[in-house]
Design a protein around this nucleic acid. Structure first.
Lengths: 115, 115
DNA sequence: TCCTATACCTAGAAATCCAAGGTATAGGAG
DNA sequence: CTCCTATACCTTGGATTTCTAGGTATAGGA
């Protein structure tokens, strides 16, 4: 079941910040984590991931460091900053409000959010 | 309480089709209905409403008719077509799947969808 | 040696939406 | 009678976001 790709618009940054709030990750890892956590329902392509990370970094919401490990090529690992945590909090509140508002227009069975 | 306007991206057509599935409406009415049903949380501006209606009509998902009534200026009233109902069904399924997937990434308390 | 998975990146285009402007009608306030 | 406001339609240009399609590079296995 393919999800209309337009729906993710406006939520990518929030999703990335949320994942980085749990642990530092590199771009490729973020992309595959998103895909596997959603069972393939949501894919954020590399063409989106990297520019978005650069933009978040330029704005000070995340910061990066090159990391080397055995038998792996170099990776740029991103960590969320305190400013990023603040933004995440705002964006999560916004997402909640949006869901609530959408529920008035397009009711969805509440069991979707359980399990 | 202002919602990040980017979040509505990709959902406008679905919302419009959903409202038109209940009853025929004109553009201005759709815009104000969306605002009042969501207590002002979601606004779809006229700059979005009219082009979107034209696009939906061009694709055969809705159809229009000019209507006159006492003491009101002419309105263009839109009705959903059977093709539009089919599209709405698909888009609602897509929205459900998207919500479900987002829930794996960004958990939201389930009571948001109640009440 | 070649292929695949990993890992980074960018340029250009597509899609969606909004802000700001314009036109027009009806009713009420001054 | 004039002006203002609410209603009602519309378009242009731009901003934003994301994707497609390409490119580069490394490590390991076939």
């Amino acid at each position: 079941m393919l999800i209309d790709k337009e729906l993710i618009k406006g939520s990518s940054k929030t999703v990335i910040l949320q994942l980085l709030s749990k642990k530092g990750m590199h771009g490729y890892e973020l992309s595959s984590q998103i895909k596997s956590l959603t069972q393939g329902a949501i894919e954020i392509s590399e063409g989106t991931i990297y520019p978005t990370l650069h933009s978040l970094e330029a704005d000070g919401y995340i910061e990066s460091q090159w990391a080397e490990s055995e038998g792996k090529r170099k990776r740029k690992v991103y960590k969320i900053t305190s400013s990023g945590r603040k933004l995440l909090k705002e964006r999560k509140a916004s997402w909640n409000d949006f869901l609530k508002a959408m529920q008035s227009l397009l009711p969805v069975k509440s069991n979707i959010l359980e399990a």
